[in-house]
Design a protein around this nucleic acid. Structure first.
Length: 198
DNA sequence: AGAGCGATGGCCT
DNA sequence: GGCCATCGCTCTA
């Protein structure tokens, strides 16, 4: 598989969010590789009231305003972490939230961290972060050189993508900035799924 | 199958 | 003090 270069992440954020679907997020740990296929993402933009970058850079969101191709990790609800991929050039606060993976590597390791079935290992942004063992300590990791990388398979083909409004936010709730792989519903966040299927 | 809610911390007004 | 880009448990059916 080909590790995605910095150039990839410098594209428009919506473009990156779509193109990440079907690629593989892989972490190198001392117990081997952990990761899976990216099946659900959301875009967060600079002029976007739902984005943490909306009011300009703060200590927390500094990485979002840095150069593309770095991991932005934040804490929500005081107990969970979520991971984002920083896009566009330095000074622009945009990123793609990774919401769900189809687990493929290190499944035993992930099951140990979360006592769940395979379909519920990485189904949700905080769940997958727990399964992968990522924390705030991984904020700012370089996706091009670090232990966390995203890879495009040799046989990658442009997938069919479903576009919907984002989940779990209270502002800009209608913007069509959530993307998931058609057919990947089994591994995608459950919230609002029935609305999709109707 | 769905609604309600507690845990828990950082950031903002 | 209030709000959250959440999850998982506990009720009610």
């Amino acid at each position: 598989m080909l590790r995605l270069p910095r150039k990839f992440y410098e594209q428009s954020t919506v473009e990156v969010a779509c193109q990440l679907l079907g690629c593989y997020l892989i972490i190198e740990t001392k117990n081997g590789q952990v990761g899976g296929k990216i099946v659900e993402t959301e875009a967060y933009l600079a002029d976007d009231p739902a984005s943490q970058s909306f009011r300009g850079p703060t200590n927390r969101t500094l990485v979002m305003f840095g150069p593309a191709g770095y991991l932005y990790v934040y804490m929500t609800y005081g107990m969970h972490f979520c991971i984002n991929v920083v896009t566009r050039n330095e000074g622009v606060g945009e990123a793609v939230l990774i919401r769900a993976l189809e687990p493929t590597l290190g499944i035993e390791q992930m099951k140990k961290r979360r006592n769940k079935e395979i379909t519920d290992l990485c189904r949700g942004p905080a769940k997958l972060t727990q399964a992968l063992g990522l924390t705030l300590a991984d904020n700012g990791t370089d996706l091009i050189e670090g232990k966390v990388g995203i890879y495009k398979p040799e046989d990658y083909q442009i997938p069919e993508i479903v576009i919907t409004p984002r989940i779990g936010i209270s502002k800009a709730t209608d913007a069509p900035l959530r993307f998931f792989l058609k057919g990947g519903e089994q591994y995608v966040s459950q919230l609002r799924m029935q609305r999709m299927e109707r």
